[in-house]
Simulated scan of single mutants.
Amino acid sequence: MKISIIGAAGGIGQATALLMSLNFNNVELSLFDIDDSVHGVGLDLSHIPSSVRVNTYSGYKNINDAISESDIIVITAGITRKPGMDRRELISANAKILYPIIEAIALNCPKAFICLVTNPINSLVPLAARILSKFSIFDAKKLFGVTTLDVLRAKSILEDKLNINVNYEDFYIMGGHSKSTILPVVNDKILKKMDSSSYAYDDFVSDVQNCGDAVVKEKRGRGSATLAMATAALKFVKSLCLAIEGQEDIIECAYVATTNKTISPFLAAPLHLTKTGWDSILIEKKIEPKVESKLLDILAILSDDISLGEKVYDLMSLSTDISNHKSLAVKC
């Protein structure tokens, strides 16, 4: 199994590389970044006893070697959100970084599973889908916007507020991956617990949605979620590896291109993972009225985010030198 991390010299990339080197066995870990400090990251990791084989590559000219024969590619490259910055403000810079990365994947390892961590996920996943479609190799089952961070946050908040042990089966996340589009949905057991406490469902939704802003604020402009995001990336990739190896009943939430365009062409939802990607979206047919009302509002916002990503693709596809754009030098 070969796993490549693109943007491995950045905060999220380094933390993800560390966690993967400690939690996988006999895996090849390929670390790539525009910045040649990525070689220092690899050297640092080599001083930690592990069965994971680490190779490092720097400079865009070497991205093909970095990702060649990859089974899974985790993309963390991009600038991070600053205090007061809306996720939409990220798309101009991060789309320029993502575009040549996806092109390289399309040309060198079109069958790889792509796990996109870079924000804004709501817009960048549709952008990536359009780029892959340009090469006629887009497989909706293998392109994931990693929204596991919202899952971890929801579980942590529920356990803290309700003082109970919460299983991942007790809730899921749907909608998108931004403050205004994250929608945690809980089962009857959790709802009853909420009803018997002072912690209401609406408060829970608000708390989960505001986690990102809270971290950005407390980091005083020095970055956004890093450690929790790396943990989320590890959780999702480990589940994906288990599915690829043939383990059944693997379920994870992610943001994907859906087969039901009447709901939304892209949606975060719980997915059943298999050897070939996700094969079904596991959303309850009957949704609580108050959840359905929130979902309708979210889908309207999500539609705008998706359109933005596709418009950015249309504008960028007109450029003939996108692979050499100076914005590629911006690291996570």
Rank of each mutant, 00 (worst) to 15 (best):
P83I: 09
K142F: 12
G145N: 05
R130G: 01
L29F: 04
I114L: 06
M316F: 15
I131E: 04
L22P: 05
L116M: 15
E288G: 10
D203K: 10
G78D: 00
P110D: 04
I97R: 08
V208R: 01
L227S: 15
K235R: 15
S4E: 03
S323M: 13
K189N: 11
V208Q: 00
V256M: 07
N108E: 01
I5E: 10
A329E: 14
N165I: 11
S280K: 09
N62P: 04
M85L: 04
D304A: 07
L132S: 01
K61Y: 07
A129D: 09
T80L: 04
N210A: 07
S156A: 13
A17T: 06
T148Q: 14
G212W: 06
L183P: 00
F113E: 01
S133H: 10
N108Y: 09
A200K: 13
D314K: 08
M229E: 09
T259H: 10
A128M: 09
L273G: 04
K238T: 08
Y60N: 01
F171L: 01
L124E: 02
Y57Q: 02
P265S: 14
D297C: 12
G223A: 06
E310R: 09
E252K: 15
C253E: 13
K286S: 15
S136W: 13
S30P: 08
I5Q: 13
G212T: 14
L18T: 10
V74E: 05
L124C: 05
A128F: 12
P83C: 02
L240A: 13
C241V: 15
A230C: 02
M174G: 01
A230W: 01
I97P: 04
I114R: 06
L90V: 08
Y99R: 02
V52D: 06
A128Q: 07
K82Q: 13
N167Y: 14
F32L: 09
A232D: 07
S303F: 02
G145S: 09
V237D: 00
E28F: 10
P100N: 09
F135R: 07
I105S: 00
E248T: 12
G7K: 14
N64G: 12
C332I: 13
K235N: 15
I131D: 00
N64Q: 11
V27A: 02
D304L: 06
R88I: 14
K235W: 13
E103F: 13
T226D: 04
F236V: 00
A233P: 01
Y255T: 04
P265E: 13
K286I: 06
L271D: 01
A104F: 09
I6T: 00
M1Q: 06
G175E: 06
M229P: 04
D188K: 15
P265V: 13
S198L: 07
D321I: 15
A95T: 03
D44P: 01
L242W: 09
V151E: 04
L271G: 00
K238I: 11
S196Q: 08
D213V: 15
I79Q: 12
I164A: 11
